[in-house]
C-alpha cells in the first residue's frame, strides 16, 4: 500500500494491462465510466464494481474532473475498493464529458476511504503527467496496450 510520496515504484504497480482499453466503445460519459470500471471487476482490490461505478458517476456529476487538455480523471474514495485501483481508456472519437468538453483519455481511479494521502498522491501524479505535453503525446500515440502501460509506468515514476 502507498504510504508516502517517496515510494514511486508502488504507484506504478497499479497499472495493469487488462485495465487499459485503447479503443473505448462507449459514446457517453456514463457508458465510458461503466466500461472502464467493468475492466476492474476482476481486480481483487475491487469489492463491488457496479457500486464503485455508481459512486464515480455520482462524484463526476457533483464536479467534473476534466482537465483542459482533452483528458479526465474521474475518481472516488470508496468503501468498494480495498486498495488503489486504476483503469485507463482512450477514445479516438472523444467522449462528451461535461458542458461541451470532449475528452480522449480517461483515467478512472478508486481509492479506499481510509487514506487521504494515497488518494492525493495518485490524483496529483496522474494530473501532473497528463499536464506534461510529451507524456500525453506518447500516451496518445501508443500503438499497443503493453506499450501504453510501459509509457504510463515510466511517466508515473517521473511525475510522482
Amino acid at each position: 500500500m502507498l504510504t508516502c510520496r517517496s515510494v514511486p515504484k508502488e504507484l506504478s504497480d497499479i497499472v495493469f494491462e487488462n485495465q487499459i482499453e485503447l479503443e473505448l466503445r462507449a459514446h457517453t460519459r456514463d457508458e465510458a465510466l461503466h466500461e472502464l470500471v467493468g475492466l476492474m471487476a476482476n481486480n481483487p482490490g475491487v469489492i463491488n464494481a457496479s457500486a464503485l461505478g455508481a459512486e464515480i458517476i455520482e462524484r463526476e456529476k457533483l464536479s467534473a474532473t476534466v482537465m483542459n487538455n482533452d483528458t479526465a480523471l474521474p475518481h472516488a474514495r470508496s468503501d468498494n475498493v480495498s486498495e488503489i485501483v486504476l483503469a485507463v481508456g482512450r477514445s479516438r472519437g472523444g467522449i462528451l464529458f461535461a458542458d461541451g468538453v470532449v475528452v480522449h483519455l480517461i483515467f478512472v481511479i478508486g481509492t479506499p476511504k481510509n487514506s487521504v494521502a494515497d488518494y492525493l498522491v495518485c490524483v496529483g501524479t496522474l494530473a501532473r503527467l497528463l499536464r506534461n505535453k510529451e507524456s500525453l503525446r506518447h500516451l496518445t500515440e501508443a500503438g499497443t496496450v503493453s506499450e501504453f502501460a510501459q509509457i504510463l509506468r515510466t511517466a508515473m515514476m517521473h511525475h510522482v
Binding site: S63, R77, V116, A117, L120, V121, V123, G124, A127, R128
Partner: peptide, 19 residues
C-alpha cells in the same frame, strides 16, 4: 492534506468531498 497544499494539479481536480 498539509503536504499537498502547494500542488497546483490538485487545486481544481479535488473537492472537499474527496478528502
Amino acid at each position: 492534506i498539509k503536504g499537498y497544499l502547494n500542488d497546483p494539479e490538485l487545486a481544481e481536480l479535488v473537492i472537499a468531498r474527496d478528502i
